[in-house]
Design a protein around this nucleic acid. Sequence first.
DNA 1: CAGTGGTCTAGACCACTAT
DNA 2: TAGTGGTCTAGACCACTGG
Lengths: 233, 233
Amino acid sequence: MLKYQHIAEEIENYIEEHKLQQGDKLPVLQDLMSQFEVSKSTVTKALELLETKGVVFQVRGSGIFVRRHKRKGYISLLSNQGFKKNLEEFQITSKVIQLDVRKPTTEAALNLNIGPDDDVYYVKRVRYIQGQPLCLEESYFNKSIVTYLNNEIITESIFNYITDGLGLNVGFSDMFLHIDKLTEEEAGYLGLEKGDPKLYVESIFHLTNGQPFDFSKVTYNYVQSQFFIQAVI
Amino acid sequence: MLKYQHIAEEIENYIEEHKLQQGDKLPVLQDLMSQFEVSKSTVTKALELLETKGVVFQVRGSGIFVRRHKRKGYISLLSNQGFKKNLEEFQITSKVIQLDVRKPTTEAALNLNIGPDDDVYYVKRVRYIQGQPLCLEESYFNKSIVTYLNNEIITESIFNYITDGLGLNVGFSDMFLHIDKLTEEEAGYLGLEKGDPKLYVESIFHLTNGQPFDFSKVTYNYVQSQFFIQAVI
DNA sequence: CAGTGGTCTAGACCACTAT
DNA sequence: TAGTGGTCTAGACCACTGG
C-alpha cells in the first residue's frame, strides 16, 4: 500500500470513527504531516484523492473540511466513490439466465475492439437488491483477456474475480445513459409492466493499459433506481 | 492561469488539432517537460487533470495515450468534463416560466442550509436543446449569496453570471438521480404524455468554501436524454 | 498579519513495459 | 536492460481567509 493511499484511508476512518459531519474541520496540513511523518506533497496527494472521492473539500486560507451528504440508500454511479462498499451495504445477489462462449454481435465487437470471429463470454443475469430485482444485465467479455468464467463466479462478483482471480488491472470505463420504456421481456425479468420507465446504461470497461475487456448493457428497475454523483467543478 | 492548467489546455488543443484518436500516443514526460520548460511534477499535475477529465490515460513503462469515446450527441453528467463546452455545441435556449423572491420550502431550506424565513430566488424554466424541450428546471438560490437575478440573466446561463458577474467561486455539487413517470404538468411542459418516463435530478451546488447556494430540481425529457460519464477506477 | 492551503522545483528512487 | 511513468522528499514562494 502506498503512503498516500494509506493516509487517505486513515483520514477516512478518522471521519467515520469520530462521526464527523458536513463542514467539520480536520487537522491542518502541518499536523497531518507530522502525525504521519511524511512530506507535505504526500499529505496533499492523499487529500486530493479524498477530494475527488467527495469525502473532503479544502479551502485555501481556512482549512480542510468534511464533505458528507445526508441522504441514505443511494447508489454511487462513480466507482471511485466506493461502488463496492455501497453495494455491500445493500446485499446484492444475482440469478444467472445465460452463460456461454459465442461470437460477438457487431455492436459488441465494435465496442470491445475485436473481430467478428473472436470469442466472447456472454453473460445474462438479473441482479437483486435486498431481494428486489434491481437490473437486467447483458455482458460481453473479450475471451482472450477474461479467459475463464463459470456459473459460480458470475453469481458472485465478476469484478472481484477479474482483479483478484485473474490478476487483471481495471483502469477506466465509459458509460452511456438513456431513459426509455421497458420492453415486454425486460418488464418480465424486473417484475414491472411493459412501457414502464427504465434507465438503460451501456458501459465499456478498460484495463489500465487501455484495452476494452467488458461491454455491458444494463436495464435498471426504475423503482429501485436511486443514484448519486458527487462532482468537483 | 496556472502553469499546469495552461499545459493541460495546450495538450488538449494538440489532441484536437492533430485529430488524435483513442489509443494514440502522446510525447513522453521528458519531452513535455522540456517543451514547456517546467518540472516533472507540473507536467504530471497537468496530466492528472486530463486523466480525471477522461482525456488521456497513462500507462507506466509505456506512455501517455489519448482517451476518446466514439459516440456523438451525449451530454456529460460531470461538469469537470466540459459540461459547458458540450452544451455550447448543442444550442441550449431557455424559456422562463417564473422568477420571484420568496421563502424557501422546507425541502429547499434544508438543502440550502438556511432558515425558513431567509429569502430565496425561485426560478422555473424550460430548457431547449436545438429547439426541442430538454428539461423542466426549478431552482432555489440563497439570496444572501446570489444577491440579484433578472429575466435576462436567467434566460442566458445563470452559472456564467454567478461566476463572472457576481465573482463567486463554485466548488462542488451533489446530484441525486431517480427514474420515474411524468406528471401531467411536467408532460405538458416537455411535450410528452403523462406517465412517460423521466429522469429526475436533484442537485445541490456549493461554493468553494462549502456553502450551498443553489438547490435545483430538474426533470429531463426522456427522448432527449443521452448522457455519458467517463470514470476512472 | 498570522495561519492555511496551493503551486512549483530539482532530484532521488521505485515499478512496470517492451524489446 | 533501457525507457517510461509513479511516488516521495525538502523547501521556496504564492494566494487566500479570518481575526
